[in-house]
Design a protein around this nucleic acid. Structure first.
Lengths: 210, 210
DNA sequence: ATAAAAACTTTTATGCAATAAAAAATTTGT
DNA sequence: ACAAATTTTTTATTGCATAAAAGTTTTTAT
């Protein structure tokens, strides 16, 4: 068999990420040393570095796994086609926050955000942003459906709107995890306020020179 | 004179931040050691830690200084009262990006973003977010003026709208600094797309049961 | 003006992340 | 089964961060 090596490598990766997740949840991010992760996974500390670059890299790998699962079931947990756009977006934000809190504590999510901005350009960071893009496209598809049903103007660009809504949702998500005291329902209210205010603005009709 | 001590302390703070700024711009963030900052400022490395907690803390202090200056002149560099909301917001984003690039390189701005999210709750981090709030209120005041002129619906909440626009602008700013290749005008186009799409949505009229 | 007290800084020491290079072990292909 | 290739481990170094002890300077009270 020609790929014993690749298989062992994958095994080690799995053990590292699994051990890391347990330790992070058990002792927190700062108090778990790479050495401890390595021992729990049965490899050397340097190997952890060779595989994931940094401690935050291990964390990112683990978050990406978890976010893939969210992506698979997100669309089906969102409200049906009768829902209005504000409620849809708030529900979207709700699901993401609930999922995030089921996975890790705010404390650790802050490390995730820091890691993806500092390590911008890394493979893992790119994978994270690609997942964001896929999450955004869940909104885009809903918007397209609403246009087909005549519940949204056919003039607007669904890609642009979906991305804008995702950006806004994401900004509020970051505020959510940035403050231990911030509660989910508060953040949802803020987001609702954002959306209502934005949707109340109407574009000026450009002067028609004909 | 009862506060020689306080004065010396302030002197040391100034020397530390000044030296740090020079070194960061000269050699980059990673390659300037706290020890080097300390030597340049004529104090010990531990003193730098005692004053600012972390290397990122020194960076944050320096960014806050610079952002205060931006805040002072931002309103006057924005387009006049005839400008439309999309253009106003894009101009706002434009000024912030130009100012940011005049102050530090993207590389270092990424460290700033990481620092404010990880060190959420710190004094310096709070000061940073307070400045964000003040920047947002530049938009809020413009919106209020537009309402008075009848150029925006009197129904909408200017605080909510201003904050929403700021959040969106900030999200795009972070994308700007997160990718070395991202150009200002590209980001401005994205933001414009966001705004046009969002402003194209109309709120459904709630069913009136009277 | 001087000595004790208070406030700060520096010195010293330790743990851990990150990185690099050499050494050791294991798989692969013949 | 053996030589070559690949990969991990060992070993060593740098720098951030933190804590405690030691040393210095300013302040306060007499």
């Amino acid at each position: 068999m020609s790929n014993l090596r690749a298989q062992q490598k994958q095994d080690r990766r799995n053990r590292i990420v699994t051990s890391a997740k347990e330790l992070f949840r058990e002792k927190g991010y700062d108090k778990t040393t790479i050495e401890a992760i390595a021992v729990a996974a049965g490899v050397s500390g340097v190997t952890v570095h060779n595989y994931y670059g940094t401690k935050a890299g291990v964390l990112l790998a683990l978050v990406i796994e978890s976010d893939k699962q969210l992506l698979e079931r997100l669309d089906s947990t969102l409200p049906g086609p009768e829902a209005e756009l504000v409620e849809l977006t708030v529900a979207f934000a709700h699901e993401i926050m609930v999922h995030a809190m089921q996975t890790l504590e705010k404390d650790i999510w802050r490390q995730v955000i820091a890691a993806v901005t500092i390590e911008a350009g890394t493979q893992l960071s790119k994978a994270y942003f690609k997942l964001d893009e896929q999450l955004a496209s869940v909104l885009v598809r809903r918007i397209e459906a609403m246009q087909r049903d005549g519940r949204l103007s056919a003039d607007l660009n669904p890609l642009h709107l979906g991305r804008a809504l995702f950006q806004l949702q994401n900004a509020r998500f970051i505020q959510f995890i940035s403050t231990d005291a911030a509660r989910r329902d508060e953040i949802e209210t803020w987001l609702r306020n954002d959306l209502v205010a934005l949707f109340s603005v109407t574009l000026p009709v450009p002067a028609d020179p004909s």
